[in-house]
Amino acid sequence: MRVFRTLFLSMLAASALPTAVLAVVLVQDRGGLGAAPAAAVLGSAALSAILSAFVARRFTEPIRASVQGALEIARGRFGRQLAVRSRDELGDLAHAFNHMSRELAGYDAENRRLVAALERGYLDTIRSLASAIDAKDPYTRGHSQRVAELAVEIGRELGLGPQALLALEYGGVLHDVGKIGIPDHVLAKPVPLTAEEMALMREHPRIGAEIVGGVAFLREALPAIRCHHERWDGAGYPDRLAGGDIPLAARIVNAADTWDACTSDRPYQAALAPGAAAGVLAELRGAQLDPAVHDALLAVLRRRGALPPAGSAESAA
């Protein structure tokens, strides 16, 4: 707008100057202006103002559009095109801007494709690692992937955003990665563990956090890996966190892990039916499990059809 004002005033001054000089000469020569000369002077001044505004607008509009387009690009909205209304230098400016905008849009699309491919590669690598973990214990094959899928559904039920859901997926897949450091005979022991073996088993969240701690893209998944055995009442491990001090991702993975453990065959326990497993979770609500996360888990399981709808006779039974 400042360029328009400056250009308009400059052109108006330049175009109106001859008329002003003529008016001064007539006044000096005749002692005043008649009606017709005065009308001519005013008409000339008005025409000068109109033409000056038109020319100033013609020059400044492409500049204004280019500035607005540059701001759009700076905000990450690539691909904007300007209308090319002339074949002069202003038209060349619009052509150059449009070419730049198209190129940036192409680069942005390619970068997004590469990032998506990289993330898929990350996830495939993580799943391979989880499969290696599950392979150590045939009773838990597929456990990590099931926990990850259920954790993401619980996160959606709680209204979490895309980044939090991605952290849940990574954390769910890798929540037991620390079991790599646990001897096989302890993992697959068909009877209850001794106190020493239980202490060793309880090291796996800390070991897992140490394994992935140096991986930048897994940083947001670390709380789920380290804290998924913390309990709402503070009696969990390894840090004995309680309530809201436990990261939400860990509370969600804990609930998903507990459900899958209850409904899967283990060396020391046959799989429970969904109704019986829901009864176990009800007893753990407010003790091991965050009540809000527990309720979101039940909503997901009902939506999946694993449990009857809330309020039904079967559910009440």
Rank of each mutant, 00 (worst) to 15 (best):
P309L: 06
A13Q: 08
A310W: 01
E196V: 15
V280T: 05
L289A: 05
G121S: 12
A195Q: 15
L93F: 08
P274F: 01
L114G: 08
A216G: 05
A35H: 00
R141S: 12
A164M: 07
P37A: 06
E89H: 08
K136A: 10
H175W: 08
L150Y: 07
M201P: 02
R102N: 13
R58S: 02
E220F: 01
S101K: 01
I182E: 01
H228W: 04
L222S: 01
S264F: 06
R85H: 05
R80I: 14
G236E: 05
P183K: 02
E103W: 12
V3H: 09
A261F: 14
N111K: 14
Y107D: 00
G142V: 14
D295Y: 09
V152L: 09
R302W: 01
R304Q: 15
V173I: 11
V186G: 01
H95W: 14
V21W: 04
A167I: 01
E61P: 00
R2A: 15
A271S: 12
V41Y: 08
R102K: 09
A83H: 09
S131H: 05
N254M: 15
S131M: 07
A39R: 10
H229T: 12
R112M: 10
E157L: 15
Q269F: 14
V27T: 04
G214Q: 09
Q28W: 05
L174W: 11
A317D: 11
L301K: 02
R303F: 10
A317F: 07
L284T: 04
A117R: 11
A53W: 12
S10K: 11
E110L: 15
Q269W: 07
V191S: 13
L248Y: 01
A49Y: 03
L90P: 01
D137V: 05
I63G: 00
A70G: 04
R87F: 14
E169G: 08
K136N: 14
A209H: 02
L33I: 02
V186K: 05
T263R: 07
A256N: 03
I73H: 09
G79I: 06
A74L: 02
E157W: 12
Q145P: 06
A94K: 12
V24C: 03
A242G: 04
E110V: 14
D265G: 03
R285D: 05
A20F: 11
A39H: 03
A109L: 15
G181W: 08
A40S: 03
V21F: 04
T194P: 10
A224H: 04
L9Y: 06
G279E: 13
Q163A: 07
G159M: 15
D265E: 14
H175I: 09
G172R: 09
Q163F: 00
L193W: 12
G236K: 04
A256Y: 00
